[in-house]
Amino acid sequence: MSTEVRPPMVTAEQVEKWFGRTQVLKGIDLEVAEKEVCCIIGPSGSGKSTFLRCINHLEVVDAGRLSVAGELIGYRQRGDKLHEMREREVARQRQDIGMVFQRFNLFPHMTAMQNIMEAPVRVKGENRAVAQERAQRLLDRVGLGERADAYPSQLSGGQQQRVAIARALAMEPRLMLFDEPTSALDPELVGDVLDVMRQLAEDGMTMIVVTHEMGFAREVGDSLVFMDDGVVVEAGAPREMLAAPRHVRTKAFLSKVL
């Protein structure tokens, strides 16, 4: 049996991003292995959400290289020249990368079921019956099997976020990105969403989670990254880092949030 060396799920090399004259990412290096759960923490404005959005090309990187499963995101390399990808090709890449947003972003004119079925049916051209069956399974899995016909406005924030997770999973992604998934929720609703994410991690999903939930990072995360002012200040094993941060900025941040 050959031991095939698989590329890491996500590789970022010196990723830079500018918004006008402000540089928000100042050379990010990061590697996330398959089945790894990587949590990113840091003060607001540190660039962690921007970095996450670069991974599925919602933001375009200005310098450096970013690839998912060994494939460059948004560009194709021919010789030493980079070619921009067509919209269709970018869309193709995004199908493998699920994303969950802070503000859920469910489609308000569709029921929970329709939200989940939309992309598999319209993008992949999947059979409606097959898509519906999977959607129902996913709804059961996030504990909302009974609410298939509810519109987002009829669901609580926590329920909406769980539907949003199910919607992302319906495309059977290889990688899931979470952009502060519990920040817009009432405190008593956070637990249900984190439980779903914990289950997902146990099932072996590769996840990158931008979060303020230190408990989740400690218990579920395989690695922890602290970002500040557009750079990765410190990275390591969550338990050790949270217990004994090495860098002063990490110490200062953790003393405020823990």
Binding site: L58, R94, Q95, F101, F107
Partner: peptide
């Protein structure tokens, strides 16, 4: 705008 972003993240084209 979050609606467009969510749709793009699912791999939907601009027209769709």
């Amino acid at each position: 705008e979050g609606q467009t972003e969510a749709a793009s993240a699912l791999g939907m084209s601009r027209l769709l």
